[in-house]
């Protein structure tokens, strides 16, 4: 599988993503943000970090990086795009995903393990999980408070676009379960077509027991499984 990880000035989770993909048996390529084409890739990852120092708004400047024009074209033609943390913020800024990510409701930067509920397992990104499965993935952000207006939220629900919700250890999507005040405890969403996913938590940090857990690994294996199935069908 040909995987490209975009590196913006200020990205800092791109090597974690690279390593996580290596654990899954793949060998991704780093793509500098000044490149202008993502042609030939099967998946584009927008990693976490602080692109452009979070100046102005998180993701606001990265979204105008030269490579992003082609990432948008790639996404619109059905290519898989996966934005994690700052990558999610960039995806909302460039309009590939609805809503926006605001300062955490409690004003604190949060960096901790977090329980999530998998709301959908029929996606390229989540087919290895069970629907309703509770997984533990760390969060690490100051601006993860997902916001969307009533109309937008109704659209997300109607199209079944909510993929992950923050929950308590008992699996309840209550205020107590949320680290940042996100609307409806939303931690990750997908576009209507299901090929662009944005999430605040960091699955790339939990792919080996040695570093504290493996709950994120199935996202990598899901994408791989999806790609293998599609390739077999195509062959």
């Amino acid at each position: 599988m040909k995987i490209g990880i975009i590196r913006f000035p200020g990205s800092n989770c791109e090597v974690d993503c690279l390593e996580a993909w290596r654990v899954a048996g793949q060998d991704p390529v780093m793509i500098w943000h000044q490149e202008t084409s993502v042609k030939g890739f099967d998946l584009i990852v927008l990693p976490g970090g602080f692109s452009y120092g979070d100046y102005l708004r998180t993701g606001a400047i990265a979204r105008f990086s030269p490579v992003m024009d082609d990432v948008v074209t790639f996404a619109k033609s059905g290519g898989l795009v996966w934005g994690i943390c700052n990558g999610f913020q960039i995806l909302t800024e460039c309009g590939l995903l609805p809503g926006a990510l605001l300062r955490n409701a409690g004003m604190h930067f949060v960096c901790s393990p977090q329980y999530l509920r998998v709301e959908r397992n029929d996606l390229a990104f989540t087919n290895k999980y069970q629907e309703g499965q509770i997984i533990q993935i760390p969060v690490n952000h100051g601006e993860g408070n997902y916001t969307i207006d009533d109309e937008g939220l109704a659209g997300l629900k109607a199209n079944n676009q909510i993929v992950f919700r923050y929950v308590t250890s008992e699996g309840e999507a209550t205020e107590k379960g949320s680290p940042n005040g996100s609307r409806e405890n939303i931690a990750g969403i997908v576009n209507e077509q299901g090929n662009v996913l944005g999430m605040m938590p960091h699955p790339e940090r939990v792919v080996e027991e040695l570093i504290g857990g493996v709950d994120g690994k199935d996202m990598f294996l899901s994408i791989l499984e999806h790609w293998e199935r599609r390739t077999q069908r195509g062959a």
């Binding site: 708004r57 606001a60 400047i61 105008f64 800024e93 609805p98 809503g99 926006a100 605001l102 969307i148």
Partner: peptide, 8 residues
């Protein structure tokens, strides 16, 4: 385009 995010 840049200085504000019309969503918020």
């Amino acid at each position: 385009k840049l200085l504000s995010n019309p969503v918020i």
